[in-house]
């Protein structure tokens, strides 16, 4: 079985995620798993679920007081950090305010739903993103729905592709970090990618979707090679 297939086998990756969270995965195996986890959101979602269970073990520990200097250092650090964080927050809102994607996303949903891109509500029933090219022209509409646990990508405009290249869909965590590949996308028509319940849960942490042309033989375990062609903000959709 190839390495890629091993990590896509739920039996195997769940066992590895569990060992990682319990702390029984060590050395190179741990590093390898971390690298894959950072690229594949289904691995990260499963690992997070187990980390949340094993994290309870810390409750059993006897409390030990650290020196007062620790808090002084932390306090100093976060006060220095505060202005930078405010700027970052402002720019994120600014990004939303150029809201073409937001307006188009609203067209995607049925009338009994509302789109709220600022919401972190756990009640999202779907997510939507309009992916635009460099000229801010909408090219792909992406919907991620809980009902059928699927990601659908509708290309509304053809994308010219060099021979030997295919389009890959990537997701970016809201809190930064490396983008993770979600799957291959057809350059015309509709593509459906199935997801599982853990992956659905993980969508709450995703801020941006992107599509880039990649070599057709790019394995999932390799990072993105090419410049992003399409990009869009992922917005949660909740029932009224």
């Amino acid at each position: 079985m190839s390495k890629l297939n091993r990590y896509q086998n739920p039996e195997i990756f769940e066992r590895l995620a569990m060992a990682y969270a319990a702390g029984t995965l060590h050395g190179r195996a741990r590093l390898r798993f971390e690298a894959l986890k950072n690229q594949h959101f289904y691995l990260e979602a499963t690992t997070n679920a187990y980390e949340s269970k094993f994290g309870n073990l810390a409750e059993l520990l006897p409390g030990e007081k650290p020196s007062d200097q620790v808090w002084k250092n932390i306090e100093e650090n976060i006060q220095v950090d505060a202005p930078a964080r405010n700027v970052a927050k402002k720019s994120w809102f600014g990004w939303l305010s150029n809201g073409y994607a937001y307006a188009l996303a609203a067209l995607l949903v049925t009338t009994f739903m509302i789109v709220n891109p600022l919401s972190t509500s756990p009640d999202a029933v779907a997510y939507a993103a309009v992916l635009e090219d460099f000229e801010n022209t909408p090219v792909a509409i992406t919907r991620i729905t809980h009902d059928d646990l699927s990601v659908s990508v509708d290309m509304v405009k053809d994308i010219p592709l060099e021979d030997g290249k295919v389009l890959k869909l990537w997701c970016h965590p809201k809190n930064g970090g490396e983008p993770r590949m979600m799957g291959e996308v057809s350059k015309t028509g509709q593509t459906i990618i199935k997801i599982n319940a853990n992956q659905w849960e993980h969508m709450q942490t995703i801020g941006i979707l992107e599509i880039s042309p990649e070599p057709s033989n790019l394995s999932d375990s390799k990072s993105r090679k090419n410049i992003v062609t399409l990009r869009g903000q992922l917005s949660p959709i909740s029932e009224k």
Binding site: N48, A49, E51, S52, K53, F54, G55, N56, A58, E59, T120, P122, E201, Q204, T205
Partner: peptide, 9 residues
């Protein structure tokens, strides 16, 4: 995200 687990964990 409180849906995913306790804050302490």
């Amino acid at each position: 995200n409180s849906q995913k687990g306790k804050a302490f964990t």
